[in-house]
């Protein structure tokens, strides 16, 4: 198991790219959803496969986790997990502009997840002159027990991953959810190559 600790400069560079992507994605979201999205400083850290469930920290009340894979040029790939708390799901249909009886709560959660993931990663990719494709989003589990089970039962073919956690807060709906991007070990070197290229341009 090798440590891939990012250098301070790489970490700073990634953080700034994420900040800018978050900003533009939130702006698009705010216009589309007609509300204000509050931004927090994202966290970037290294996780091991054993500690993944602990760092995702699904609370007793977590209702849903949605997964969506992403992949771009230069071997940039990973998986996005969207983690929801129960109070978040009440007003989703209203937020998305649907009538509540037009779609199930599950569909609302999947729809919103896809919007959050793709808007953010599209902007992120364009900053590093890349382009992302996505797999269809899937509901991994719809309550706490199931998500812990799902993750704990897996035996992974990776030891370490780069984890980026972004919290979305939508003020008018007192709604928030965590978007966790997990980049597996094999793709991290591809990310650091891109970061080094950007840093070298300064």
């Amino acid at each position: 198991m090798s440590n891939f600790n990012l250098t301070e400069d790489q970490q700073d560079c990634l953080q700034e790219l994420i900040n800018v992507a978050m900003g533009q994605a939130s702006d698009q979201l705010a216009r589309y959803l007609d509300t204000f999205v509050y931004l927090k400083v994202p966290s970037i850290e290294q996780v091991s496969s054993q500690s993944l469930i602990g760092t995702l920290n699904p609370s007793d009340t977590t209702v849903a986790v949605v997964s969506q894979g992403f992949f771009g040029y230069e071997g940039i790939r990973g998986e996005a997990l969207l983690i929801y708390q129960p109070k978040d799901s009440d007003k989703l249909a209203d937020l998305l502009g649907y009538e509540p009886d037009e779609l199930s709560v599950e569909e609302q959660i999947i729809d919103l997840s896809s919007i959050l993931t793709t808007t953010f990663l599209n902007v992120f990719a364009s900053q590093i002159e890349n382009q992302m494709s996505y797999s269809a989003p899937r509901l991994l589990a719809s309550h706490k027990g199931a998500i812990s089970e799902h993750i704990e039962q897996q035996s992974y073919n990776w030891d370490l991953a780069l984890k980026v956690k972004i919290t979305y807060q939508v003020t008018d709906y007192s709604f928030n959810c965590d978007m966790v991007l997990l980049i597996p070990e094999s793709a991290i070197v591809n990310i650091t190559d891109v970061l080094d290229r950007i840093l070298a341009s300064f």
Partner: peptide, 17 residues
């Protein structure tokens, strides 16, 4: 409209519809 406004792809799975 989400595809047009956000310029991003969207999905619909048989599991929901």
């Amino acid at each position: 409209s989400s595809v047009i406004e956000l310029n991003t792809q969207s999905f619909c799975s048989w599991e929901q519809r």
